[in-house]
Design a protein around this nucleic acid. Structure first.
Lengths: 205, 205
DNA sequence: TCCAAAATAGACCGACCGGTCTATATAGAC
DNA sequence: GTCTATATAGACCGGTCGGTCTATTTTGGA
């Protein structure tokens, strides 16, 4: 155990942060696999190996607050994965191709239990808890923005870039829906290919 | 057993069919709006104005059986709407454009409570009840097949047609997810436009 | 008309839901 | 060491869940 933890973050927040993030991770996984309503607090607590008291200590707002945190976290993972691809590959077309392979890998690696961590809750809560909707909206927005920025940097107009980025996310999200029901990552790989071609073509235009 | 059974549509099935379909319709609407797990039987019964006894009379398998019937019904609606567009418009590109406008209209007309009647349940039950998964899979398959047939008739190879049809459905499904969270039908209209262009281009190739 | 099947009606059940509450343990500040 | 957050721990609550069960009403064929 390190002797000094002071620096900028108070030492007392170390364990606090760890417990919080364990809860968020467990919740995000379960919501991703089976949705928000179908996931009971007891299930989350089991996976996080925590008592109920801790949950309501870290998230006084209960399930909704935890859900919002989980959506925010999931959105960041999505966005960071995409951003990493945008940096490592030069073009957005290649980044989308790689990103779709990431998604396909997630599907296969989880036996098709894990698609988009946000979409399941997005659909069932679209007209539900405002806090959840807000977190979900900003998660999607972040992904679109990241892609849109790159598309703009490649010479497209901001309007066209935003359209294209939204379309890419649409296609990948939908492909994840089909992929999970078909238990095949083919729709996602297909979508990645089609989008890469589309983006390349639109660059030439 | 009596030897009756005559004809194929006995009068006794009129009211029976009506009750069944009222339940299916109510269930399909609620599942579409808020998902399978979040919808209680009492809520379905309220909307259908039926007692619980009737539900278990028509659907001895309970919620799962009703859910499967609702998904099947919803899939047919989706497929018939698309098929109608495929017939009325000559080309698949125009049909997709019109179909996406249908979807956008559904969204706006319901204040964004109604997106794809199948997708919500598809995500939350992807690794859940097998009967539901089967109904959902065949619903999607029917839509893809209808579109794929038209694309093939227009001269594409069956493989290419199937790829393209899957991609179209992916893009529209994903667009519906974004549209509901953004409370705007723009993503759907955009997707329709992009797909129409894509299909037209692929015809020239 | 009469009757069995079909359909409606809803009370009732155990299980589990999200949430509250009190009690205990742990750790950093002084 | 002592004191006070902070965090862990889990019993407990009212409500609702899906599902079962027993009546009663309706209905169409004989």
């Amino acid at each position: 155990m390190p002797t000094s933890e002071h620096a900028e973050a108070p030492a007392s927040s170390r364990k606090r942060g760890e417990s919080r993030s364990r809860l968020i991770t467990a919740a995000a996984q379960l919501f991703q696999e089976q949705g928000y309503a179908a996931t009971g607090l007891s299930e989350i607590l089991d996976r996080a190996k925590m008592p109920k008291g801790s949950l309501y200590h870290h998230f006084p707002g209960g399930k909704v607050e935890l859900g919002a945190a989980a959506m925010e976290c999931a959105g960041q993972v999505l966005q960071q994965t995409l951003s990493a691809r945008l940096e490592s590959r030069g073009s957005s077309a290649e980044a989308i191709r790689a990103f779709s392979q990431d998604l396909a890998g997630w599907l296969e690696g989880s036996d098709f239990t894990k698609g988009c961590p946000v979409a399941t809750v997005a659909l069932e809560q679209a007209n539900g808890e405002p806090d959840l909707v807000a977190a979900i909206r900003s998660a999607f927005e972040g992904v679109i923005q990241a892609l849109s920025d790159q598309l703009t940097a490649e010479g497209r107009t901001p309007e066209r870039a935003h359209r294209l980025a939204t379309f890419c996310l649409s296609a990948l999200e939908g492909a994840l829906v089909l992929a999970r029901t078909q238990r095949s990552s083919e729709p996602v790989r297909m979508a990645g290919e089609e989008l890469a071609v589309l983006i390349s073509d639109s660059a030439r235009a």
